[in-house]
C-alpha cells in the first residue's frame, strides 16, 4: 500500500535525495532537466504521470574505448605506434582538466596496445595511466588487485581489456561519488576522442570500422551537452570544437528499421533484430577525421 505524503514533504524529500547525491548539490541546469512527462504504463495501459529525471550531468553514456579496441582486433587492423600519444608527454599535463582528458587518451591507447605484442610499451602506458590517476586523487580508490594483475597479464589481451575497463569504471565511480562529475566527463571525452582517432585510419578501408565511426553521432552530442555546462574557458572551447564535430555527423545517414525483438526467458536474453545501415561518404569521413585530429591536438598538446 502506498503512503500518502504531503506534496511539500515529498518535494523536500526529493530535494534531500538529490542533495545527498554523492555529496553534490543539485545544479540549476539539473533542475531544468527535471521534466514532468506523461507516459503509458505498458502493464495496465492507463495513462500515468511520471517524473522523468533527465539529469544530463549525471547520467550519460559513451562508447567504451575497449569496445573500439575489440573491433580493431576483430578487423585485424595493423599496428601503428605513430597513432599513439607519446607517454613522454605526460609531464606536459599539469592542470586537472588536461590530466583528466589525457587519462582518457592514455587509457584508450592502452586498450589499443592490448591487441599487440609489445609488453614494455604496455607497461609504460599503464604507468602513465597510474601516475595520472594518482595526480587526480583517483589511484587510492582503485582496487590494488587491478593494478597487480595488470603486469602479470601483460600478454593476455582479454584480461587486459577487462582490467582496463574495470580500472576506468572504478575511476568513473569514484569521481561521480565525490562531486567530480565534470572530471569524469573529461576522462570519458579524452578516451572517446582517442578511440575515434585510432579508428579513423582503418575506417578508410575497413567497412566495419567505417560504420563504427558513422555511428558515433549520439556520443558526440552527449559530449557537447556535458561539456557546455562547464564554467571553464578551456572546456567551453573544447565543447565548441565538439559541436563542430557533431555538425559533421549530422550529415551521416543512418537508416533504421524496427524488427520485433525475440526474448528467450529461459536464457535471460533478448535478440534485438532491428536493422540499421550507415551511409557515410569519403568526403564526410575526411571532414570528421580532420575535426577529430584538430580536437585531439588541442587535448594532447
Amino acid at each position: 500500500m502506498k503512503r500518502t505524503i504531503h506534496p511539500l514533504l515529498a518535494s523536500t524529500a526529493a530535494f534531500a535525495l538529490l542533495f545527498a547525491s554523492c555529496g553534490e548539490a543539485p545544479k540549476a541546469s539539473d533542475a531544468e532537466d527535471i521534466t514532468e512527462v506523461v507516459s503509458v504504463d505498458e502493464a495496465n495501459e492507463n495513462a500515468v504521470t511520471s517524473k522523468l529525471v533527465k539529469l544530463d550531468s549525471e547520467i550519460f553514456s559513451l562508447p567504451s574505448p575497449v569496445q573500439t579496441a575489440v573491433l580493431l582486433s576483430k578487423s585485424e587492423v595493423a599496428y601503428n605506434e605513430a597513432l599513439l600519444n607519446s607517454a613522454e608527454k605526460k609531464t606536459n599535463y599539469l592542470s586537472q582538466s588536461a590530466q583528466a582528458l589525457n587519462l582518457g587518451v592514455y587509457g584508450a591507447d592502452l586498450a589499443y596496445l592490448s591487441n599487440y605484442n609489445n609488453a614494455q610499451l604496455k607497461l609504460d602506458y599503464f604507468k602513465v595511466v597510474e601516475e595520472l590517476a594518482t595526480e587526480l586523487n583517483i589511484r587510492n580508490n582503485i582496487d590494488q588487485s587491478i593494478i597487480d594483475r595488470f603486469a602479470s597479464n601483460i600478454d593476455n589481451r582479454d584480461s587486459l581489456y577487462t582490467l582496463n575497463a574495470n580500472l576506468f569504471k572504478a575511476a568513473d565511480q569514484y569521481l561521480k561519488q565525490n562531486d567530480e562529475e565534470d572530471v569524469a566527463a573529461l576522462v570519458l571525452t579524452g578516451g572517446w576522442i582517442e578511440a575515434l582517432h585510432l579508428s579513423m585510419e582503418a575506417a578508410t578501408t575497413n567497412p566495419s570500422m567505417r560504420n563504427r565511426v558513422g555511428e558515433q553521432g549520439t556520443a558526440v552530442r552527449s559530449i557537447v551537452n556535458l561539456l557546455k555546462k562547464s564554467e571553464e574557458a578551456a572546456t567551453l572551447e573544447l565543447a565548441s570544437k565538439m559541436a563542430a564535430l557533431a555538425d559533421e555527423f549530422e550529415g551521416v545517414n543512418i537508416f533504421y528499421t524496427y524488427v520485433k525483438p525475440i526474448p528467450d526467458a529461459s536464457q535471460r536474453v533478448t535478440y534485438l533484430n532491428s536493422k540499421s545501415k550507415v551511409e557515410i561518404s569519403d568526403e564526410q569521413l575526411a571532414k570528421i577525421a580532420a575535426q577529430v585530429n584538430e580536437i585531439r591536438q588541442m587535448i594532447i598538446q
Binding site: 549525471e58 547520467i59 567504451s64 575497449v66 569504471k169 565511480q173 558515433q216 549520439t218
Partner: peptide
C-alpha cells in the same frame, strides 16, 4: 567487460531516470 561507466540516480517515488546509449 564493463563499458567503463557507472550509472546511478537517486530516485523517489515514481521518478524515472533515463539516458541514451548506442548498442553496437
Amino acid at each position: 567487460i564493463s563499458d567503463g561507466q557507472f550509472y546511478r540516480a537517486l530516485l523517489y517515488n515514481d521518478q524515472v531516470a533515463e539516458f541514451e546509449t548506442t548498442l553496437f
